[in-house]
Write a protein that binds this DNA or RNA. Structure first.
Length: 315
RNA sequence: CGCGGGGUGGAGCAGUCGGUAGCUCGUCAGGCUCAUAACCUGAAGGUCAGUGGUUCAAGUCCACUCCCCGCAA
């Protein structure tokens, strides 16, 4: 069960890793994903990444409105699963569902639990400037990411990482960990251990408004947020122009530990390939940006055709 | 038919009321300099997204098509 790209990656790994030394270790008998949602410019219905992957792999995909509805449970029972693997499905699963498979439900979660339980663990790890995160496999219970841990795998977060690069890496790791762990789990060699009671953190959903840069913060913090919010929902601010504000997305930036007493949000430097903005503490150098209606581009290209003079105050 | 912006030399943009296409950067050649991503001189490079229409004349006006992007979801 899953919905976005992360889950699709796990599904692919699960299928490609199901055979070892000519022996079939397991078989994916069904896939469950959220219903298709209208997406894109003309609001056409788009299949979820997991559905797309399932169809590609020739697997049956079930898309109930609610996983807890009796018909959904019935469908699952009809498949008679030994195990259900859940990755970013997007709905809370009731105990009655968790109880169906003999080996329970295993969740792939992209953080080192109990840190960052919840909806947006990848983004919050970067937002908080963590230097390390990872994936956790846990045996699900009725709580929100509170199940007992089967296995974990770490990865460090570099200053080059954004939510996209980290997501892709964790998706890869998650799939691998799953394929490596399942045989031992089935063989009873793994004893799930409870999550530590210390260090519990919740990663609430990211909203659009989280992307609005507050220049009073330090350049270092803003940098983290930009990385955490790229590619979605994107970090942005506004250029004041006559009549209306123009939205400016910041895709990539770095911070300079430079003291400045200028009002936060003021553009300090704007020449050929340097665009620097005063922050509450330090200076943010923008490297890659996008004006609304335009394509994403590096500062050099941007400044070749747009005027954004020093002294302009961004909002 | 959800709302809106846009397609102009390699990149990013300007182009007014229709009248032989400009700017910044890059590229190439030459010069200056101990030296340079700096500076000076020169050059190359455009079917103005496509199709049709209006006109003496269309990047510009009209119609349709294709493509890119922001919002929304």
């Amino acid at each position: 069960m899953g919905t976005p790209d992360l889950a699709a990656a796990c599904l692919r790994k699960l299928v490609s890793g199901s055979v070892s030394n000519g022996q079939s270790l397991w078989k994916v008998t069904g896939v469950i994903s959220q219903p298709d949602k209208p997406k894109g410019r003309n609001l056409h219905l788009q299949p979820t990444p997991v559905k797309a992957a399932a169809l590609e792999l020739g697997l049956e995909c079930f898309q109930p409105l609610k996983a807890k509805d009796p018909e959904s449970l019935e469908w699952i029972r009809s498949k008679n699963p030994d195990l259900i693997v859940v990755a970013a499905y997007g709905q809370i699963l009731p105990q009655s569902l968790l109880d169906i498979p003999r080996f329970g439900c295993i969740n792939v979660h992209t953080s080192l639990l109990p840190k960052y339980r919840g909806a947006a663990p990848i983004q919050w790890a970067i937002w908080d400037n963590c230097c390390e995160t990872g994936v956790t496999l846990m045996k699900m219970n009725a709580g929100l990411d509170t199940g007992d841990i089967l296995a974990t795998r770490c990865t460090s977060i570099t200053c080059e990482d954004n939510a996209e690069t980290l997501h892709d890496r964790l998706a890869e790791l998650g799939g691998e960990l799953l394929v490596e762990t399942l045989p031992d789990y089935f063989a009873g060699k793994i004893t799930p251990r409870p999550q530590p009671e210390e260090g519990i953190l919740y990663a609430r959903k990211i909203t659009k408004e989280d992307g609005h840069l507050n220049w009073n913060l330090s350049a270092r913090e803003l940098c983290c947020r930009i990385r955490a919010l790229t590619p979605w929902p994107g970090a942005f601010c506004f250029i004041p122009e006559q009549e209306r504000k123009i939205m400016l997305k910041i895709w990539q930036a770095e911070f300079l530990e430079k003291a400045t007493s200028t009002r936060p949000g003021t553009i300090l430097t704007s020449e050929t390939d340097r665009l620097e903005v005063a922050c509450g503490n330090g200076v943010l150098r923008i490297l890659c940006l996008q004006r609304e209606g335009k394509k994403r581009m590096d500062v050099r290209s941007f400044l070749a055709g747009h005027t954004l003079p020093a002294g302009t105050i961004l909002e």
